[in-house]
Structures are given as C-alpha cells and as structure tokens.
C-alpha cells in the first residue's frame, strides 16, 4: 500500500504520539501492581476493574491542581524544564524500530540519534534544579548532572560495542545482524548498558538526585499539577525508550519464531520483560550513596565497557 508522503508522515507521527502517551501509562500501572504484589499488597483497586484506570484518575487529579511557580524561581527556566525533559524521549521513540518495517523515522545512524537526543534530556533536570530557586532542588540537580555525565560514557561505549559487532550504526541493521550467541559475546556490555540505563533514568538504586529522605524530591520538589505529571511521564517514557533500546541492541529486537509476522510483538514482549526487570530493581535494592554511585561508574562500569569493546574488536577481527 503506497500512501502520499505527507499522509504517511502524519500517520506515523500520530502513531508514535499515541504510543508515547499510552506505553508509559502501562509501565506506570505495571509498576503499581508489580511493586504491590512483590510487597504482599494489592495496590490500587478502586478505579476500574482491578484498579486498571488508576493512572487515568491520577492524570485527572494532576490537571485539576494549581500550577504554582515559586516567587524565587527563575521563571522561564522553571516553566520550560518539564518540556525539555519530556520531548527528547518522544524523538527517541520515533527512531527505535519495532521490526524491519515498523519504524517511524528510519535514519542511517539511528543508534547515535537515540543516544544523542536522550543525552539532551538531562537539561530538563538541570533547569528544574536551578530554576526552582530551592536549595534541595539545586543539590538534587547537581547530583543528577554529575550522575548523568558519568554514566553516559559507559553507556555509549557499551552501545558502540554492539555497533562494532554489527558493523552498523542503524538500529535496524544492528537487530538484523544479531544472532543468539551475542547473548554471551555481548554479555558484559549488556550488563553495563542496563546498569547505566537505570542510572540515566535516575531510578532506584541510583535515585540519589531524588532521594526523598535527603533532598525532599530533588529537582522536582517545587513542581505541582501538570508540570509535575510531565516529569513523571518523562520518567516512565524513559523506561519505555531504554527497554526498547536494550531489546534492539542486546536481545535481537524482533527476532524469534515467525518473526516475519509476529516481529513487533516479540519486540514488545522482550521490552516488557526488560521494563519489569527495571521496575523490580526498585523493589529489590536500597539506594546507593552518591560516592558509591560515582565509584561504580568509573571503577567498575567503565573498565568493563572497555574490556567488552576489546572483546568485540577481537571477535570482529577473528570471525568477521
């Protein structure tokens, strides 16, 4: 079926936007339920059957709340921060393939595009930390900045290893070059990428920028209503993007039985499992201290990523 270019672009944009608005809600609801059941609770049960509409109810609540800008805030920086945090993940989602045909924006260096735009998202957190005019926000923003810069390096190196193995910077090309023994060959890189992704998302155990017992809620302390909801949406959208990226890079994306027809479903299933793993970490581990966090990035993850890079290089030269 051939559509006119403009119609095709609009249609793809609408589909990506729909996925961007629904998948994070699904992740949020899963987090409520998985966390509750792992802790021997029921979780939300009132809104809809088995509490399935809880996040919709939350959304309605957020819309009704007053949008407060503190008197000492840096007004425009404060107001723009949620958008800056959210939009990069929308762009990233458009570039990640669900199957060889199911990709909204198929660009030649899509891996680099996704890594580059997600690295812009940190400005949302920095702007929130600075713009709030609150010392807890400032400390939280600084922690976030230090953390994101440190963990970006091992993450990019781990991704580079897969790109080297596949000989391609395109996510579609990488997923097509994947074969099952990469699960072992790229295992150190996969571990590094997963840990760095959780740190980039500022999720437990790497949530010291938001640590509620130390800095209230870090950069997001002063936010209310819809702007606060946007930050939450950015966090869950981040989980969606990182899970999909991990799936495409390290788990072969859509490869599986009958991948010609079921490809996107395989991607969704694998990404959902990765997302649940990321949620599970929050329930299983306590928060890592700030200095331990930096130590892990520079003394464990970075050398491991370099070893993986060397391993991949040797592999490519010997077998490639």
């Amino acid at each position: 079926m051939d559509l006119p270019l403009a119609v095709e672009i609009i249609l793809k944009a609408v589909v990506v936007l729909a996925a961007f608005l629904t998948l994070p809600l699904a992740i949020g609801q899963t987090e409520h339920k998985v966390m509750a059941h792992m802790q021997g609770r029921l979780g939300p049960m009132e809104a809809g059957p088995h509490g399935i509409a809880q996040l919709v109810a939350d959304g309605i609540k957020f819309v009704q709340k007053e949008d407060v800008t503190p008197a000492s805030a840096d007004r425009w920086v404060f107001k723009l921060a949620p958008a800056v945090a959210l939009i990069p993940y929308l762009v990233a989602l458009a570039a990640i393939p669900w199957s060889a045909a199911w990709v909204a924006a198929d660009v030649p260096a899509s891996l680099l595009l996704v890594l580059a735009v997600t690295s812009v998202g940190v400005f949302g957190t920095l702007m929130a930390g600075w713009g709030s005019g609150n010392k807890y926000s400032l400390v939280g923003g600084m922690r976030a900045g230090a953390q994101l810069v440190s963990y970006e390096l091992p993450m990019v190196l781990a991704a580079a290893s897969v790109a080297m193995a596949a000989g391609s910077l395109s996510l579609t090309g990488i997923a097509q070059a994947w074969s099952w023994w990469w699960l072992i060959w790229q295992l150190p890189g996969a571990l590094v990428f997963l840990v760095a992704a959780v740190a980039e998302l500022q999720r437990v155990p790497f949530d010291s920028p938001l640590a509620d017992s130390e800095v209230v809620f870090g950069p997001y302390t002063e936010y209310t209503g819809l702007r606060f909801a946007f930050f939450l949406l950015a966090e869950y959208a981040g989980i969606v993007v990182m899970s999909l990226l991990f799936t495409v890079l390290f788990l072969g994306g859509w490869s599986g039985p009958w991948s010609d027809t079921l490809g996107p479903l395989w991607t969704l299933l694998k990404a959902a499992l990765v997302a649940i793993l990321i949620l599970w970490l929050r329930i299983a581990w306590p928060r890592v201290r700030e200095d331990q966090l930096q130590r892990l990035a520079w003394l464990v993850l970075l050398p491991l990523a370099l070893v993986q890079l060397a391993l991949t290089g040797v592999g490519v030269v010997v077998w490639g």
Binding site: V122, L126, G145
Partner: peptide, 14 residues
Amino acid sequence: LLVYVGAVVVLVLF
C-alpha cells in the same frame, strides 16, 4: 549534539 550539548555544556552548567 552528543558531545557538545550532552556533555560539555552540562559540565559548564554543573
């Protein structure tokens, strides 16, 4: 984008 925006200016702001 990755190096200048995502890393260098972040460091400056930090």
